[in-house]
Design a protein around this nucleic acid. Sequence first.
RNA 1: GGACCGUUAGCUCAGCUGGCAGAGCAGGGGACUCUUAAUCCCAAGGUCGUAGGUUCGAUCCCUACACGGUCCA
Length: 501
Amino acid sequence: MSEEEVKQQERGEHEDPMVTRRRKIDELVAEGVQPYASGYQPDSRSADLNKTYEGLEPGTETQDIVTVAGRIVAKRNQGKMGFYVIRDAQGDLQLFVRKNVIGDEAYDSAKNLDLGDWIYAKGNVLRSRRGELSVQPTEIVLLSKSLRPLPEKFHGLTDTETRYRQRYVDLIANPEVRSTFKTRFEIIAAIRAFMATRGYLEVETPMLHPIPGGAAARPFITHHNTLDMPLYLRIAPELYLKRLLVGGFERVFEINRSFRNEGMDPRHNPEFTMIEAYQAFGNMESMMELVESLIVSVTTEVIGTTDVEYQGTQVSLAAPWRRAKMADLVSERVGEKVDTHTDIKTMRALCEKFEIEFDESYGSGKLLTELFDELVESTIVEPTFVYEYPAEVSPLSRRNDEDPDVCDRFELFITGREFANAFSELNDPLDQRARFEEQARAKDAGDEEAMWIDEDYLRAQEYGMPPAGGMGIGVDRLVMLLTDAPSIRDVLLFPHMRPEA
RNA sequence: GGACCGUUAGCUCAGCUGGCAGAGCAGGGGACUCUUAAUCCCAAGGUCGUAGGUUCGAUCCCUACACGGUCCA
C-alpha cells in the first residue's frame, strides 16, 4: 500500500458508508455531543409554514423565529452556505444554512450531517431569491443519527421486495406511498363517521374463535395453552355480530381484521380488513341503500368526486347503481335461459362447454354461481348489485319468499371485482340448522371451506333474532379502487411476505 | 401447485455472439454565499441471488434451489 493510499484510508475514503457513519457517531460522542438527543420540540411544520408565508416575496427575509424538525432528504452545500431539505409529516422544507449566520463551528458540524439524519433547527423565516421558503438556522441539533444510506434521491426506492419488507424505507423515499396510506386511513375514518350518522354502534367481537364461521374459507389455527384447546383466527365476524342482534342491539358494525388461510396474490392477503354491519328490521334492499350510500359518501368526502380511474379504466361511482339478477346475467352470457331451476344436465353441459371445472356434488345453484364467477364477474366494470344468489351457496342468507331456491342476497361488483356481500339475514333457526347440516355433509365430503355447525349460534337464533339485513365490504379493495393501487400489497402497510432469503 | 419474467455497487440501472465488471446518484477528498435531480475536479466502491454443471474461459449457456413479480389452478 502506498503512502497516499494509507492516508486515504485514514480519511475514510475506502469505508463502507455504514462504517463512516459509525465513525461520525464516535467522533460526536468524543466531542460530548449526544447523537440521539431528546427534548427538542419544533413549533412549526413544513406545510403550515408554507401556508403562513404564502405571500412572502422571493428574496425577502423576515425576523420571525421558528423551530422545525425533520429528516434530511437533500443536502446541497456550496462553499460557505448550504441548502438542506428536511422532511416532516407534512412535507419538505428548505434550511438555508449560512456560515456567517450560524457560526464557523456549527457550520462545519452541519456539513458533517448525513442524508437520513433527523435534525432540529431554529432560525428566521425567509424566501430565497429563487422563491423557496426557507428557515435560516442559527442553531441545528442532531436528533437522531442515521446509520444507513437512503435510497437514491431521484428514482426513490422501486424494488418491490424491499418496498414491502422495509416499508419504513419506502415511506421515507416515496412520498406518494405516504399519501396512499394517508388516504387509506381517511377512508376508514370516513366509514366510521358515516356509520355513526346512520346510528350504528361500533362493536368489537372475538378474533379468536372456538368455531370459525361466517364465511367459506380455511382458517388459521392456534392453541390456547391454559385451556389446552384449539382456537381459530376469525374468518369473519358475522356470527358474533348477529348474536348481538339477538341480544337487542339494532344497528352494529365492526371494522377490523379477518384472517383466511389461503394463497397470496394481488388481491388477497392472509389478513385483511372488512367492515360488517347489521341492521335489525332491514333486508337486502336496505343493505343496497346502505352500501351504495356509504361508498358514494366516503368516496366524495375523501377524494372529492365519484369519477375514479382505476388502472386506466374510468368508473363512475355515482348513484344509482345497476341491479341485475345473477341468472339473467349468466343467461345473457351463455346465450340461453338458465337459473337455479335449470336441470343439472344442462348446467353441467354448459360448464363443460366453457371449460369450467365442477364437482359431481354441485347442484344447479352452485353450477350457476360457477358460470357467473368464471364468465360474468370480470366483465362488470360499473358498480353493479348482482342479486338472487342460489340458496345452495348462501348458507346464512334468508330464502326469497317467492322462490326458496334463491336468497335475498347480493354481491357488489366494480372493475370486475367483488367489493361487498350482503343479504337479508336468515333468522329461522330451523332452516339455519338444516343449512348447517348441509354444510357439514359437504365438509365430510371433503370441502375444506364448508362451514362448521355452530351450536351456540343456533341456540342464540332459537331465542329469536329480529329480521335483519347485513353487509360486508372489503376495505382493502375499496382503498385499492380509490388510490388506483394495482395490488393489495400497495394498500397494506406491512403485507405478509415469506421469510427473507 | 404450474407457467413465464426478474435478482449486477448502499439506491436506480447498463453490460453486444461466452473473453479483465460499467454509469448516474449516495458515500470520501477538494472548489464554490441563492441552490432545489446544483455544478466542477479527484479518488474509491462488486461473492454479478445461492449451489452445481458445460467450457481453455461463465454476469452471459444448462440444472437445482431461494426470494420477488405477473398470470393460471
